[in-house]
Structure formats: C-alpha cells, structure tokens
Computed example of a mutant assay.
Amino acid sequence: MIREATAEDDSSEGPLLRLILSGPGDPPALPAGSTASFAASSNSQGAIIVRANATGASLGDMGGHRHLILVPESTERGTDWSIFEETQSLPAPAWLSPGDADALLSQATDESASLIESMGYKTDKIPNPRLTVGTLADFYDTPGLPSSVPSRSAKLFARADRVAAIIETVTDRIGDHSLDPQLFRLWRHVRAARIAGVDYALMDFAR
C-alpha cells in the first residue's frame, strides 16, 4: 500500500518519510483532534508520516498530496502498526538544520551536566555524576545505524542520547525530582534533534 501510494513522489518536496515525536507540552505535528493525532499522543513511540500521491489505490481521486500516518504499538508479539489516511493540511515542521539542532543540544548538555554537579550530588548511589552520564550514554548509543547514515545525523543522535542519559541520571538513578521542570524541558530538544537527524539522513539518501 505504501509503495503504491508513494510511486509518484517528487523528492524536491522534501523527505518522503518524516518522524513525529511528542511529549508533555509538545503535541505531535498532526491535525489537532484527528484520530491519528490521538493515537500518536497515546503512545511513547511517536509516528511516521508518509507523503502519498493522490492516485494511490486507496487514496481516491482528489488532487494534491495526502499523508499516511503510521503509528506503532508494542505488543507481546512485537510491534503492530496502525495506518491512518490524513487529508487535512499538516502543521509545518520545524525543519531544523543539523547545525541548529546540534547547537541547541550542545548547550542543553552543558547546562544540564553543570546543573547536576552544582547541586552537589555525591552519594553512594551516584558517586560520580559525569561517569554515570557517560555510562548511560553508552547504553543509549545506537550501534545499529546503517553505515550509510551521514555523520551529521549520527552526531545528532549521539548528542540526543547523552542528554537523555543526563535526565535519567538525575530522575531515575538519583531519584531526585526537584529538578523535573528544568530537566524535562530538555526532552523537547532531544526529540527535535532526533527528528532533524532523520530528516537530514533521508534527504541525503534521496540525493
């Protein structure tokens, strides 16, 4: 269905696929109140937008583009996907460049690490905050990336993993939630960087 629906795609209009991630205070970039938006908001895995031509078998005869929204759901047997056809205009994506996303994450990483240390976290549980962050960053690492993924995308993914590790160090390993407002706002930067990395990689693949 997806192959047929995208057979007439024009790569000049941007990536054929787009990653959608959302979180508290950061709704998915889908039409508000739509079934797809509700489904994407109800899971923690986001969604994939596929730009489809209007002549696809299941897409009718309307002119212009439609979109297929793929929403995953984890089950005991693996991952199930629900597909929604969306005819409404989608919210404009941020289209952050890798440089912009990297700069935001770099600043967030430095501020967060300094924040952890400035609070004097030196406990038996977390004797070395920066070492714990490094260990968690290794855990979050994505060694399964295809070799063809551009280095700028891989760098964004790695920095996003590091910020995620910092947040987990404070909230889960230390168990201190007094900094939640300051740290949880960083998830927005993590999501934006991962989306930007995917966009850049797909545009690179299309060239």
Rank of each mutant, 00 (worst) to 15 (best):
D9F: 12
G64D: 14
S148N: 06
H177C: 06
P146Q: 05
P28H: 00
D176P: 07
R162C: 14
S11Y: 10
E8A: 13
G144I: 12
T87N: 04
Y140E: 15
M119V: 09
P146F: 04
T79E: 15
H65W: 11
M62Y: 09
G78D: 14
F139Q: 13
L19H: 07
T132P: 01
A196W: 01
M119T: 04
L17M: 14
L59P: 10
A52Q: 12
A113C: 13
D61F: 04
G144L: 13
I126Y: 02
R18E: 15
E13G: 03
S118P: 00
N53R: 08
S89T: 07
Y200R: 00
D141L: 04
A108F: 05
A7T: 05
F157W: 11
D80E: 15
L68V: 05
A193P: 01
E111N: 10
I20C: 04
D100W: 02
R159P: 03
I2A: 06
Q45G: 05
A196V: 01
A5E: 13
Q88R: 01
S22G: 08
G46D: 12
G56I: 04
W187C: 06
R77V: 13
P24E: 02
T142D: 15
K122V: 07
Q88K: 01
D204R: 04
E13H: 06
L136R: 11
R173A: 07
A36V: 03
A40V: 05
W95A: 15
P15L: 08
V163T: 03
E13N: 07
S178N: 12
E111Q: 13
A113Y: 04
Q88S: 02
A57T: 08
S178L: 14
A108T: 07
S114G: 15
P181W: 06
S82D: 09
M1Q: 08
P24R: 02
